[in-house]
């Protein structure tokens, strides 16, 4: 008989107490219909109050980056209450109208491959997040709009990016540029792909348990202790049970062929 438990994975720091939790630099405290989000670096507060975002102490004076982080998390909580679950993944819609979710940690190549697919004619739902919704007999990915953030170093492979050189944020260690695009609104989900940058190209099917564990990590608000946790986990479970799951280990060779790699899996 094999061992029964696989290794646990902690995804949050600090000492979580019921209805108190930490998400990156943001501490949160939920009480009744009010969740207080406190940005620890900017010392700014945003409330999620009965499904609306309400500015609190220090919010207006906080740097825009801190305000963005607060609003991003606040919006995820509001939408979670409406059955729309944020997943940290790029969402790309293939020519057949179905969405592929590319998930993984920051730096795994989500935006890069999203742009590569966009060049190949795929439509974008989001490059750093999508919203998952259970529909009648299917799962739908909705757009999570924000500009596609790409490193200018990719101009070596995609020459048209040279025209963005004047817009590079050189204070950003990744020297990124922002590319706007016309997002699709929503699409049914075709597959879930976890990305890893390595020295060789390989694509392998993932067991459901592995995929769901990784998905929990990419949709960490599922761990919030409230009435929405159960339907949130149920939606993630349905995703890994309904669609094929893969791990794509990729090199720069995929930059010009990832669309063929993915569609090859669909046939």
């Amino acid at each position: 008989m094999p061992g029964l438990a696989q290794s646990p994975a902690a995804i949050a720091t600090g000492e979580p107490v019921t209805h108190e939790w930490r998400h990156g630099l943001i501490d949160a405290r939920a009480s009744g219909g009010d969740t207080l989000l406190f940005h620890t670096a900017a010392r700014a507060v945003l409330h999620v109050r009965h499904g609306r975002l309400v500015r609190g102490t220090g919010y207006s004076a906080a740097p825009s980056s801190a305000r963005r982080e607060l609003v991003r998390l606040g919006a995820q909580l509001v939408l979670r209450g409406r059955g729309l679950y944020h997943v940290h993944a790029a969402g790309l819609v293939a020519p057949d109208g179905r969405a592929w979710l590319l998930a993984g940690e920051s730096g795994c190549g989500k935006s890069t491959l999203a742009y590569a697919l966009m060049r190949a004619g795929w439509r974008v739902l989001g490059d750093d997040g999508v919203l998952l919704q259970r529909a009648l007999d299917t799962l739908v990915a909705h757009a999570w709009r924000q500009p596609l953030q790409l490193s200018i170093e990719l101009a070596e492979y995609f020459p048209e990016l040279q025209s963005y050189r004047a817009a590079v944020d050189w204070s950003d260690p990744r020297h990124r540029i922002s590319i706007t695009y016309r997002a699709m609104q929503h699409a049914p989900i075709a597959a879930l792909v976890f990305l890893a940058r390595v020295r060789h190209d390989a694509i392998t099917p993932l067991p459901q348990t592995v995929a769901l564990s990784r998905l929990v990590r990419q949709s960490s608000t599922v761990l919030l202790s409230d009435a929405h946790a159960a339907p949130h986990l149920a939606a993630l479970r349905e995703l890994v049970m309904q669609v094929p799951r893969y791990q794509l280990e990729h090199t720069e060779r995929q930059l010009h062929r990832v669309h063929k790699t993915l569609l090859g899996l669909a046939t």
Binding site: A5, Q6, A9, I11, A12, T209, L223, A229
Partner: peptide, 10 residues
């Protein structure tokens, strides 16, 4: 949901 840890079982 208390410790924010998660596990997979075979």
């Amino acid at each position: 949901l208390h410790s924010k840890r998660y596990f997979s079982l075979n």
